[in-house]
Design a protein around this nucleic acid. Structure first.
Lengths: 335, 335
DNA sequence: TTGAAAGCGCTAACAA
DNA sequence: TTGTTAGCGCTTTCAA
């Protein structure tokens, strides 16, 4: 059997209360006792059961991470950043890939609740706000990362999508482009909306017209991006530049262009968003708007911990500035 | 407070045992009672506490996944495959990125033990076998994926690295290459050793000589691959083809070649291993040995579950055949 | 400085 | 078919 607190208490000839005290470091224990008990715990290879400890009202030191898909490099990088920060404080992360499906979100949340996680970091779209409200009702602390919900008072860390959009527009406009298209994932995702809003604002700041019919919506997978871009690029009024709301879509766009024999960046400039590892290895390497993924992850975890400690803290929304990374998928517009 | 089994029992005017029975579906309960109780659980939004249930000897429905780095697309894809399979059976996955450091492995394992996970899937290198033996001692079920240890009787799923190596060698040799180099991560990783062994075997099958001094060892990151390949490519006896033990290193090699003005595949062919999403987006797209990642993940989870159910099962080693995916980073050797 | 005992929410005999 | 009760391993008063 697994060794329990009773085993070490018996070995040491003390009560379990005493052992418990040396484990937690609380309460006064004579130095001699403490060392003796520590030694015995060592010998018996004693590992206190978090399960039991959690049952008596302590924390589980486990948090849930809801994201669309862990195999999407952007979220994998987010996960790593969070994991590292969490690990330092002894927390573990349960990954939950939702595919952006509300039903999966609900299923996972209920699972996490049953497992009494200390909190949840949400980085996935949730259409039905009620799902999140339920978290509030049950007072399960949660924060949002890379997604947000204005309807909720919740700690949030995002990158400034609006500015990101502007950055992309400026870059492209400065290169002389005038005919644009936008490839975006589901508009229900507020960050996509903001990126588009920023992009359009950037254009309008420079008095460049843009027609919303040049916005194409698709799923967030490479394959989807390729398919949508493929259609897009068959218009008679072909764009000379495409702004893609994430790197995956941008890669799809590059592939579509290749398929159609359209040279990137010679005949078509493409800008992505995120700057995951993918952006640096595409053909051509992708000009993209870089999110400070590492910082975002760490801040999100810290916000969550603040919440656990002090549930009455004033909610904050941390907005990190993205940055334009120029690689080789953009170039001067031909005339 | 959170609603407990007592709350629903009181509401229903029955004992907690009865409620417990309808939750687990065991025991005979009259249909009427059952429905009444179900309704009340619904109303009260009752979620049974897995913590409490785990404490009385049931499972936690949580498993640990040890991998080098979740932000490495190969492992992220493995994780997703496992997660999907696990989720179907109500299991959650705790991710543990070890960076291949034994100390991190130990730390994580002890954390997982404290959390009473039902089992562990190990996909990371572990130098000190004792660490794994300790898992056996404590009868924590575990299986290995994409790594193995001949010293241990443990269920394992790997792709056939040896065959993968042969496939790469054959492909390159058929293209007329004769001067090779190998870029590998740490040789302590058995899969790298096997890939190299297969590659050398493939060459020797075709009577092509290969000198071990052309094997370069480096860390598993792109940057490391770039650095090592950079040095490698400065030999007077430059290779015309490089076999890289994973896609990340292959990407590094491509970058190094670019830096040195060596055209891929014109002047240098490169073969990777894994076939993650990265391989399809590099410049040029990477010829690589594809591992059946999805199948591997699912099989690994299934093996683990078998272990939980029936700890006396005969250990098995499942070897999945990899496949050569020809893209554009390889071509006929110039003469 | 130490220990006895209650109780966290649940399961599983065993009784009724 | 339903209920009583004894734990699971731990933390935490409260007493000693």
């Amino acid at each position: 059997m697994k060794t329990t607190i009773y085993d070490v208490a018996k070995q040491a000839g003390v009560s379990i209360a005493t052992v418990s005290k040396v484990i937690s470091g609380k309460g006064k224990i004579s130095k001699k006792r403490r060392e003796q008990i520590l030694k015995i715990m060592e010998e018996l290879n004693y590992q206190p059961s978090m399960i039991a400890s959690a049952l008596v009202g302590k924390k589980t030191y486990t948090i849930g991470l809801l994201i669309p898909d862990i195999s999407n490099p952007f979220f994998a990088e987010i996960a790593r950043a969070i994991e590292d920060q969490a690990h330092q404080s002894g927390y573990s992360i349960i990954i939950c890939s939702t595919d952006n499906k509300d039903e999966r979100v609900e299923r996972y949340i209920s699972l996490l609740e049953q497992k009494s996680v200390d909190g949840i970091i949400i980085g996935t779209g949730v259409e039905n706000i009620e799902i999140l409200r339920r978290l509030e009702t049950r007072s399960i602390p949660f924060v949002m990362i890379s997604r947000e919900s204005t309807a909720l008072a919740v700690d949030t860390v995002v990158s400034d999508d609006y500015i990101g959009g502007i950055l992309a527009a400026q870059h492209l406009a400065e290169l002389g482009h005038r005919r644009f298209a936008i490839l975006s994932e589901n508009l229900k995702v507020s960050s996509s909306r903001e990126r588009i809003r920023g992009f359009k604002q950037g254009l309008s700041d420079m008095n460049i017209p843009f027609d919303d019919k040049n916005i194409v919506i698709c799923d967030y997978r490479v394959e989807e991006g390729r398919r949508c871009a493929y259609e897009l690029l068959q218009y008679t009024e072909k764009p000379t530049a495409i702004f893609c709301c994430n790197d995956l879509l941008a890669i799809g766009a590059i592939q579509a262009a290749k398929q159609l024999g359209i040279k990137v960046p010679d005949a078509l400039s493409i800008v992505g968003f995120d700057d995951t590892i993918l952006a640096s290895v595409t053909d051509p390497p992708l000009t993209t708007i870089a999110q400070p993924i590492d910082r975002m992850g760490k801040q999100a975890f810290n916000l969550l911990i603040d919440n656990l400690m002090n549930s009455e803290s004033v909610k904050q929304r941390i907005v990190l500035r993205p940055e334009l990374i120029i690689r080789q998928s953009t170039q001067h517009a031909k005339r």
